[in-house]
Amino acid sequence: MFRVKEYVKAGSLEEAYQLNQKKSNVLLGGMMWLKMGSNYKMTAIDLSGLGLDKIEETEEEFRIGCMCSLRQLEQHKGLNEYFGGVFKACTRHIVGTQFRNGATVGGSVFGRYGFSDILTCMMMLDTQVELYKGGIVSLEEFAKMPYNRDILVRVIIKKDGRKAAYVSQRPSKTDFPVIACGVAKKEDCWYVSIGARPGKAALVKLTAGESSLAEQAQAAAEQFAYGDNLRASGQYRKYLAGVYVRRLMEQLKGEEQK
């Protein structure tokens, strides 16, 4: 059971950052995963009073505060219209409405979980994270960075004209994915993101070539590493990745021709 000695509702990011430098302290997101550990923490730092629970849309980008819930992503009109509904597609199967009302974007992205639909989906887009000390880094790079004690303040997604599509396969409808695939296309570049392999999502960029979509999808899928866990074997995952990436490519191609 999760236990904590003190609770601080941070008045500023600086206060939160200072407190978070202590390893025995912990930053609260939605507490979906945190409470499952049987760890004793000194201070729980709550960012919920800093107004970071909004999605702002500008001409160039979407700015998503770290305390936004997954449900906000799911329901945000602008995001879903711009990116072909992928934010609904990547959230709707996560446990249930109440869970998505609680789970935060910051927690999901900072955690860089292997099973993360959110990370997979955002990875195929031109996404950056804004770290309190570390500044702005691309999500692709952030995913590879070691865990540190910085604070993820917001996620920024550029409106760069990418068309996107997303799909996952799950053992039951609200379970973790066996495989999660996102494909985006801009001009002649494919952005392929695959998560739950079961490793965390990574990005592969391909220039759309002359070969068939099946071959291109296969080529993309080949570039990822796959492994076994409770839900599936690496071999099956690799096979599925090829199938789903091809289907997503076909879908985007089809939409392009409309």
């Binding site: 249930g96 053992p171 039951s172 409808k173 609200t174 379970d175 409770l230």
Partner: peptide, 10 residues
């Protein structure tokens, strides 16, 4: 989380 009961979507 690991033992999956069917939900009403399943």
């Amino acid at each position: 989380m690991q033992y999956k009961l069917p939900t009403r979507m399943d």
